[in-house]
Simulated assay, not measured.
Amino acid sequence: MDTVSLRIDAAEQAAALARALDEGTAAACRDAGLLARAQEPLVRAAIWDAIRRKVDFDLFDWLAEGWTARAALRKLKDEPGPVHHGLGGHAITGVLHPVVTLTIGTAEFTLRFTVTLIADFDAVMLTLAGGRITDFVAGACDVSVQAGYGATPLGAPSKIASFTSPFRHALTPPGLAIP
């Protein structure tokens, strides 16, 4: 499992961290203490920056892996030339578990977050060639994210992108293999 390390210089941020450090190291070792600390605005912002760096990749390439499991595509993967396959409205969900090591002064805490990404498509036309999904054209699409720590959601789901109809996305060559 990959880990993102985040070090906060307590001397540099003393005023902002004083409230969090006053809770005591023992309380911070319990999940509730960690969640309380994650709500501290300075720490929360630094944690989100670390998570964003961890999940910086082509979102649609990653989400499109969900299409490769469709039985209908397996039947088409050996067809010659480009083949187009339409899908109606649907959502694709993916879950990431970035790990952040948070160091405040001499105390170190490991936090494993759950980040759920949801792409809700009106309709999609996939292009298949050589047993791979090479690109797609989609109707309107909304992408949202829901973050959590353990079983506790950290805020409401947030829309992070909205694409108007139609939009085309070429997957990173050579595309996604259909099993």
Results as ranks from 00 to 15, higher is better:
W62L: 06
V43W: 10
P174G: 00
T101D: 15
P174M: 02
L59E: 03
D22F: 02
E79H: 08
L63K: 09
K54P: 06
D78K: 07
Y149V: 00
G33H: 03
L96F: 08
R37G: 07
L34W: 08
A64P: 12
F109D: 12
P82T: 00
R44N: 05
A16G: 06
D122Q: 10
T101C: 14
R44A: 10
P82Y: 02
F113M: 05
A170Q: 15
T68P: 14
S162R: 11
V55G: 09
E23R: 09
P80G: 02
T172D: 13
A156V: 13
L59R: 01
A140C: 01
A107W: 15
A138F: 02
H97L: 14
G130T: 01
G33W: 02
A107G: 10
T164D: 07
R132N: 08
T3I: 04
L73Y: 09
L126Q: 01
A138E: 00
Y149E: 00
E40P: 01
P166S: 03
G88Q: 05
D22S: 09
L126E: 02
A147D: 07
A64W: 09
A72F: 11
G155I: 05
T152L: 01
A119R: 10
T127L: 08
R7C: 02
W67V: 00
V55T: 15
